[in-house]
Amino acid sequence: MIDTLVLTRRSLRHILRSPDTIVTTAITPVAMLLLFVYVFGGAIDLGGDADQSYVDYLLPGILLITVASGVAYTSYRLFLDLQGGIFERFQSMPITRSAPLWAHVLTSLVANLVALALVVLVALLMGFRSGAGPLAWLGVLGILVLFTLALTWLAVTAGLAAKSADGAGGFAYPLLFLPFLSSAFVPTDGMPGPVRWFAEHQPVTSIVDTLRHLYAEQPLGQDVWTALAWCVGLLVVAHLLAMRTYRRRMSAC
């Protein structure tokens, strides 16, 4: 536990010394936010929710994209540690075996939360408003934390398995596109049959809808359970996968 904290402080220091990684993480989602609200937004028909502003509608999807681009740095940082000798040094020291991994996971969580806060700040400047109470915001935070942890463990697997620095971050690209095939940008009603079916049954739609309902103070319905099931399920599978890759990598280096 102490080992994990010591190592987390180390990688947080890395981020403090190159804060551009957090800014870069936030720039793509912010650019998308601007593009979709000010360029495409006027042409997008939200259907029944005509009184809802587009920035309010769009924000949850943008937040998920922020996390997806943020975790690419997690696998990149992990890859660099493995590449240099420092990981072997840690492994040859009397510390908790999984501490170096957990340190990267905690660092990822902190870095992503900061990037998320930046994006929310920009959204507020663009007119995003919510009257939701602390409990609803706590719900939003909780789901984002779960989602970040799930993607982080995927990032850990990618970083452990990568052969090059480019390969380490490459796994994030498909994740960046999933929100486009969901209710994040436009309602699914207007999509053709098979696309609509996919959009309504992939994790992003339920998570996006839940976040939207939480801060819009609407009834949550079934979505919240689907969203939680996806997040927790993904987290468990990603964690098992990462630990398996870790054990294999550590016995074969």
């Binding site: 890395h14 000798g85 072997e88 040094r89």
Partner: peptide, 13 residues
């Protein structure tokens, strides 16, 4: 203690 083939130091620190 192990000092591996590649200097196991943290460049950013």
């Amino acid at each position: 203690s192990l000092t591996g083939q590649f200097a196991a130091v943290d460049e950013i620190l």
